[in-house]
């Protein structure tokens, strides 16, 4: 109980004084996660729509696989990315290990299946409603995907935010491929792990509170921004 209180105080202290390190690692957390989620959305959202409007022989298998990939263990993803990016690995020449780029790559791999799968679920429901009409109007596959993506944008936003939530709190993979290097790859989650290791629970908890607050704020901000467009709720 004392630790919790101390953690709250530490969080307040960090925020009030706008601790420079805190600002730096928070921004890096945001940058890594937002970049990863953006790229994952660019891939995952259309893929979900494509999967909804396309019938092919191994479709069920593909969907099952995608759902399974949602549960990819981050540590394993981290390890694989690590081995690939290591100097002695196939992509070693790019010198990406222990850089924010490596963290972004790992997060893209973790988050894309989540976004694609959630996208597929809502696109599939919408496609069920639209199916007859869009076929009747003789839309092309590309037009169908565009229509579903645009008309379903609110649920896709939710899919993206789910991916964001997963990525911002992720540590297993980014610790391995980022290395938690001060001023280079340290982000909120790895900083928390570091402080726990030092037995500095109040600071660790303070950082944790900052992390949660940030996630909530981002979610709220995006929801408010996208709601002002129209009154309706889909």
């Amino acid at each position: 109980m004392n630790d919790l209180l101390a953690g709250l105080m530490a969080a307040i202290d960090l925020i009030i004084h706008l601790d420079r390190d805190l600002v730096e690692i928070s921004l890096r957390s945001l940058q890594v996660t937002v970049t990863a989620v953006f790229i994952a959305s660019l891939v995952g959202l259309p893929f979900g729509a494509w999967l909804a409007v396309t019938r092919f022989r191994y479709r069920r298998l593909a969907i099952a696989l995608l759902n399974a990939l949602m549960g990819l263990p981050p540590v394993v993803v981290g390890l694989v990315v690590y081995i690939l990016l290591s100097r002695s690995g196939p992509f070693g020449v790019f010198n990406l290990l222990f850089t924010p780029t490596a963290m972004i790559i790992a997060q893209i791999i973790i988050v894309t299946p989540i976004i694609a799968s959630l996208s597929h679920q809502s696109m599939r429901d919408l496609w069920y409603l639209y199916h007859d009409l869009l076929i009747s109007i003789r839309t092309s596959k590309w037009q169908r995907m565009r229509t579903l993506l645009w008309d379903g944008r609110r649920s896709l936003l939710t899919a993206t935010l789910t991916g964001f939530g997963r990525a911002i709190g992720e540590i297993g993979a980014i610790m391995i491929v980022g290395g938690n290097i001060d001023h280079l790859t340290r982000v909120l989650t790895t900083a928390i792990a570091l402080e726990v290791g030092k037995g500095n629970f109040p600071l660790a908890l303070g950082l944790g509170i900052v992390l949660i607050a940030m996630a909530i704020l981002i979610n709220l901000a995006i929801h408010i921004l996208s709601r002002t467009e129209r009154e309706g709720t889909w």
Binding site: G179, I181, H183
Partner: peptide, 8 residues
């Protein structure tokens, strides 16, 4: 020189 530490 910036020395980046990997703590392992």
């Amino acid at each position: 020189l910036d020395v980046h530490l990997l703590v392992v």
